[in-house]
Write a protein that binds this DNA or RNA. Structure first.
Lengths: 151, 151
DNA sequence: ATAAGCCCGGTACCATGGTACAGGGTCAAG
DNA sequence: CTTGACCCTGTACCATGGTACCGGGCTTAT
């Protein structure tokens, strides 16, 4: 085995990802299809490890694979500017902030319900369930009671 | 058409969801399969609207369809207690808070990178890209330079 | 009575990020 | 020279929450 190139398994171990993941990234255009040996085995140049680690870090920062593909192609392109990158990163920050606000809104609404619930009594009269059920249930029940009385 | 029951389309309009979504929820066990008319058409009792609105609200609060199915079955079950419900809601709050913390961590790391980037110069020397690329790239480049010099 | 509009079951498809085979070929050590 | 570990392609599958289409049947208004 030549130490100059890596097989798929060696690359996977070096980058801390699965072997299948590497082939998946190749299909997704995140890493280039490497040259092949006689046997058809992939022979990765060692810098592919760097690229895979880049992908891992970008994923941890919340970038999708599509966005990472764009970042990588900007990296490659000679007339891409630093402010292009900065713009994408800032947009992603805004995106993350929007998701946080969304979750904060949920958290506030749901924890208000939890606080409104004593935890005693049957589920059927739980304030949480009543809030989720809304007004319509009462209206429908009333309508049905009317019908019963009229009968 | 009897006004006592609703067709799938009427139910969909009343609850503000798609017709296909209702059949999907039936397959997922979120709403019971309703009785059918002569023609095989579904005939929903009007309270199904309440159930669909319940599902919508619970979804807005971050519950998955599987969790909503559980909430609905607790609602139905006579020996389920209020504290069962409260427990699920509290667990969901904790879940949402964990997701928020995760996003906060991303936001902090990424906005630090955005602040470190002046936005001037080529993408190849962008501090954001350098941070994502890490140390390995420098090490590999050095190794390659060594090899070149030795040759 | 005919056309529009609704409904039926079944199936396939969307995005996201992979994972898991099956059925072969290859490579290195013993 | 065989055995086990590795690699190949291709395809199907996982969860999530639906959406879209097909070929047919039903209903309703004109």
């Amino acid at each position: 085995m030549q130490t100059a190139t890596l097989t798929t398994g060696q690359l996977a171990r070096a980058a801390g990802v699965g072997r299948e993941t590497i082939r998946f990234y190749e299909r997704q255009g995140l890493i280039a299809a490497p040259p092949r040996g006689e046997s058809g085995y992939r022979r990765y140049p060692p810098e592919t490890v760097v690229r895979l680690l880049f992908i891992r870090r970008a994923k941890q920062l919340g970038f999708s694979l599509a966005e990472i593909r764009e970042l990588l192609s900007l990296q490659q392109s000679p007339n891409a500017t630093c402010s292009d990158i900065r713009g994408r990163a800032a947009a992603k920050v805004a995106d993350i902030e929007a998701r946080i606000r969304d979750l904060e809104r949920m958290r506030a609404a749901l924890s208000a319900l939890v606080n409104a619930c004593s935890g005693r009594g049957p589920a059927s009269r739980c304030p949480i369930m009543e809030a989720l059920t809304g007004q319509e249930a009462a209206a429908l029940t009333a309508a049905r009671n009317d019908a019963t009385e009229e009968k």
